[in-house]
């Protein structure tokens, strides 16, 4: 049950800096902990976050084991053209999660 919440402005003026906010549910298990039987708990983190604007990469982040569960990532980009912003979280053991949002630039 991975849930992602994305906040991209629906409309923007050409050349305007827009803020994109993202939140995803993820345990971000560090790999440094042990369970009650002393067995190591395997690492399970999102290690890469990429944002593409009409296919072009505009933001990338590498995530590490010290980052809290349910990472909240925000960034700014410049509104250039109407189109699609595609956000991808790549994680350790499961398929990447992708969400898209449309933006209209006037």
């Amino acid at each position: 049950m991975t849930q992602a919440l994305v906040n991209v402005p629906a409309k923007a003026k050409r050349g305007e800096a827009i803020e994109i906010k993202t939140l995803i549910s993820h345990p971000m298990e560090t790999g440094y902990r042990h369970d009650t039987n002393g067995q190591p708990i395997p690492r399970d983190i999102i290690h890469t976050f990429v944002a593409r604007y009409n296919g072009e990469e505009v933001f990338r982040a590498d995530l590490h084991p010290a980052i809290a569960a349910n990472p909240f990532i925000t960034f700014f980009t410049v509104a250039t053209e109407s189109g699609v912003i595609e956000l991808t979280w790549t994680q350790d053991h499961r398929d990447p999660v992708t969400q898209t949002a449309n933006i209209t630039v006037e």
Partner: peptide, 17 residues
């Protein structure tokens, strides 16, 4: 206050499913 920044909303979405 912001439903798209409130991490509790992730649980609400799971609950809806």
């Amino acid at each position: 206050e912001d439903d798209r920044a409130n991490p509790g909303m992730l649980a609400v979405l799971d609950g809806e499913a």
